[in-house]
Design a protein around this nucleic acid. Structure first.
Lengths: 216, 216
DNA sequence: GCCGCTCCAAATGGATCCATTTCGAGGCCG
DNA sequence: CGGCCTCGAAATGGATCCATTTGGAGCGGC
């Protein structure tokens, strides 16, 4: 795949990705090669390659002779993306779970503690992601993992909007799901862990589908 | 995503993809920018972009400051790819099946007739692919479809080797599975169609896992 | 007053040139 | 004789310049 090529291109791609995931660049925003190049003190060439890298991760959309925009999703696409996650992330869990150490699982508990103590949306998004990917930490399936990461990233903006909207109402549900997941992992009951994870993603999808206003 | 950008880049990417899928370029083959550029009467720049496009589809692997190789898989990766297909292609079927016309289904039957009459490996690969993607013809899920296509493409070389190896021994199994799939679609029994499709992919995966020599 | 045509500025696409990195061949030293 | 080091060719990465395309502003005609 495309982890290689161009140190500069990769750096620029990472920065672009960061800005999109943190919400600095909203879906629909146009990205102009010259602007990015000047701002990052480089030529347009590595910028062009960076745009391609980020496009291959689904975060921006390119159109020939026209330019690049931060990818925009409608509710239908977002729903489908969550359905894919429901089928793929449990696979990723299965690949990783047998290799989780007791320390890993303690780390999961601590992350959930912090999630429950916190109130900031941005903090929640970071911790939630870190929790999930700690579960997947020992996967040995790059392809699968990169697809899952892509599905996660492309819905990040709408997850943020959704979280802001529903506030802490859903906190205890997510908490219960996370705790059940962590306990199943601690018990080495991987089938249940898979099932809880699928449930967790599906429940979020269903709730999201009840908030069309997230998609403006 | 990355359907746009650079008419030339896109053309070159298509040619590269074609050569890999038809087996002209085997996994592990190194691709040198200068050679491709000279052969296609263009400069290295669109070649570089084409390499990125094809890399984003998983068919070649880039390493910074080193170059590009046709992606090589081991049995474990191939097995995982088939497992992903088992979970995703039935989804794609579900998106498309309700919109299949009687003509579409007749076309499927004719394709299967031709598969059963033929003996050439290359012909089989083409017809088999056409059959599957005729089933998916009316999907309205670009992301899902592009992931499925990617999973299909990256295993193409090993499917070819496998087909050459097992010859026509598996022909009647594939025929039965395809016929059952087509009949379920004709009966508008989409749940059964999904199930047959999953079975079909899983059976192929299991057989493939019994032939490690394919990954020599 | 509205629609359409022309032309121009701005942005993307491609070619060429130069810099940098990698890897192997060949020689030198131990 | 073998291992290491150096050097150079070859390939990739980046910068600059030019070509092409696009879309909108402004003018003209109906």
């Amino acid at each position: 795949m495309s982890e290689g090529a161009g140190v500069a291109s990769q750096r620029i791609a990472d920065q672009l990705r960061e800005r999109i995931l943190t919400g600095q660049l909203a879906p629909g925003t146009r990205i102009i090669q010259d602007e990015l190049a000047e701002e990052l003190r480089t030529s347009r060439l590595p910028v062009r390659e960076a745009l391609r890298i980020v496009a291959s991760q689904g975060l921006i959309t390119l159109r020939a002779n026209q330019g690049a925009w931060v990818t925009r999703m409608d509710m239908r696409e977002c729903d489908l993306t969550y359905r894919m996650r429901e089928r793929l992330e449990p696979m990723l869990l299965t690949e990783s779970a047998p290799h989780l150490t007791d320390d890993d699982i303690d780390e999961l508990s601590e992350l959930q503690d912090r999630i429950e103590r916190g109130t900031e949306v941005e903090e929640f998004l970071v911790l939630d992601r870190r929790l999930h990917w700690t579960v997947y930490r020992h996967h040995n399936a790059e392809e699968l993992a990169s697809i899952c990461a892509r599905l996660w990233d492309t819905t990040q903006h709408y997850r943020r909007a959704f979280t802001r909207l529903t506030g802490s109402q859903r906190g205890w549900i997510i908490g219960a799901e996370h705790r059940l997941l962590i306990q199943a992992l601690r018990d080495r009951d991987h089938v249940s862990a898979e099932q809880v994870l699928e449930l967790h993603i599906r429940r979020t999808r269903v709730e999201l589908s009840r908030h069309p206003e997230v998609f403006g």
